[in-house]
């Protein structure tokens, strides 16, 4: 097998593996059970998205897409920080401190 064929095969397999990872993460987002759980899963979803773009870059050779990966990382980080602030804020205002996993089905 030549190196280019191997690279293409590795790209195809990586797409498959990443799709599976995407699917598993989405299951966690759906079943929850609490809001922080979902936010962690969303954070991981951003990482998997960046990974997808990285594989696309190698697979197609359009290195321009790398900038999109950097930008996605930035936006994903800001989103997670904003979510953390939101969780902190909401927990302090309208919910008692001792509330466990049942809350967020809303």
């Amino acid at each position: 097998m030549s190196s280019v064929e191997f690279l293409n095969l590795a790209g195809t397999i990586s797409f498959g593996i990443l799709s599976l990872a995407f699917f598993l993460t989405i299951i966690r987002i759906i079943i929850g059970p609490s809001l922080p759980d979902r936010v962690i899963a969303l954070d991981l979803l951003v990482y998997i998205g960046i990974s997808y773009i990285a594989v696309v870059v190698i697979y197609t050779g359009y290195f321009l897409y790398l900038d999109i990966a950097s930008a996605l990382g930035l936006v994903g980080f800001l989103a997670t920080v904003a979510f953390a602030r939101f969780i902190l804020h909401r927990g302090k205002t309208d919910e008692p401190v001792k509330k466990s996993d049942k809350e967020t089905n809303s």
């Binding site: 191997f6 690279l7 590795a10 593996i17 990443l18 599976l20 598993l24 991981l44 990974s51």
Partner: peptide
């Protein structure tokens, strides 16, 4: 050599992503 190595890194990296997803679950 670099292309073989990059293919190997790709497989390893996506395997780690999958394991992170399994861990989340």
């Amino acid at each position: 050599i670099f292309q073989y190595f990059a293919g190997f890194l790709m497989l390893l990296g996506s395997a780690f992503c999958l394991l992170a997803a399994v861990g989340i679950l």
